[in-house]
Design a protein around this nucleic acid. Structure first.
Lengths: 217, 217
DNA sequence: ACCTGAACACCGTTCAAGT
DNA sequence: ACCTGAACACCGTTCAAGT
């Protein structure tokens, strides 16, 4: 639309494009993310984006890496469990602010920020004097929890506020008789005032388990 | 016989369409899954699909639910940890056969098979005489592990065999110096002959943790 | 060096017309 | 009741042309 010329305030570069893409995905979801939509927000032609980004895939990789860069790295000093807990909680918050990110995280190439993040978690586990086998498994367990738990949480939220009426009818009316435990669980979710820190509780299960297996295999 | 087109052997119905879609996604990935592609495999017009499926979204929901239906439900008798371990291991195998499924699982409406599966896990946790709070958290922990761990595993595989050369160069040459723990971890992955059952190990961390917290909070 | 419109080869889905 | 081709409103991306 607005043909760019002397009116452009900021120049176009990769960082600015990725930030616009993140803002777009935060607002409309990654399913609605289009090159054309980003271009419109940046007030430039669609093809201008391709001067700074090879294709949409590279853009998604870059977007995830910016999100990864927002996560506070765990401190290598002090108690390792506390450091991982704090970093994981922060990761949890960051990912909840970018709800499209967890589904992209595992399935795309890690960028530099994510590699640094991965390395720092491994460093903390190593400094904790865990056996090599437990560093290996513990890394999988911790990262799986951060991404998997948050993904599950986001999915639950999205399913809920997309089809709440349909769901409520199905569960409470039709299915509660056939699946009483499921109905109880849904009720428990509704009673859960978000002050129960499920995320931290399950993480502690993993961290305490690692510590226990380490001293007494 | 066939009242439709004389060349059609089997009639078109939702089940057949979903199975064709699953086969297509298994082979080409969910990103390449198109209504046109499915129609071609079924040797019918694209629009014929819409007589049995409302839209692509409903098709994805149905596909995930068929996969969910393939998972062996945990036995409610016997020891609860063993039952969950066996069911989770089976779920792991099923999901690895349908690598597109984990990323879809959490983000879409659960169908009847998935609801039955969810209920059965909750039933086992309840029968295990876990406190209600631990049934609630334990369910999250177990399902998070099944989906999250498998998703991470699939992501690792896919990234690896998509860009193996690029990755190997980056890691071993450029990044090994900056990120020694990461390099160690990648090496450990290469030495891991898949007989280490990482999936089961981390699950046991969770199950044993639940049991311990239950008796001694 | 950066930008961009037109064009291409795709999508999912609506609609109207067939049987 | 089921099927389907044509058409529509989109996509990502290539290419050639601008500055």
């Amino acid at each position: 639309m607005a043909t760019q010329s002397p009116t452009r305030v900021k120049p176009l570069d990769k960082q600015r494009i990725l930030e616009a893409a993140i803002a777009y995905a935060d607002e409309h979801g990654v399913g609605a993310l289009t090159m054309r939509g980003i271009a419109e927000n940046l007030e430039c032609g669609v093809m201008s984006l391709y001067n700074h980004v090879a294709n949409k895939e590279e853009m998604l990789v870059g977007m995830v890496d910016i999100v990864a860069g927002k996560i506070d790295l765990p401190l290598v000093d002090g108690d390792w469990k506390g450091a991982l807990r704090a970093s994981a909680a922060n990761a949890h918050e960051v990912l909840l602010r970018h709800q499209w990110a967890p589904a992209q995280w595992s399935l795309r190439m890690p960028g530099p920020a994510r590699i640094r993040y991965m390395d720092s978690i491994l460093q903390v586990l190593t400094k904790a004097e865990l056996k090599p086998k437990l560093v290996y498994s513990g890394y999988h367990a911790v990262t799986m929890h951060i991404i998997g738990f948050t993904l599950q949480e986001i999915g639950y939220q999205q399913v809920l506020d997309a089809d709440f009426d349909e769901l409520a009818n199905k569960f409470i009316k039709d299915l509660a008789g056939d699946f009483p435990h499921m109905a109880d669980h849904v009720r428990a979710h509704m009673d859960d005032n978000c002050d129960s820190d499920e995320f931290g509780f399950v993480l502690d299960l993993i961290l305490d388990g690692l510590e226990r297996v380490n001293v007494k295999p």
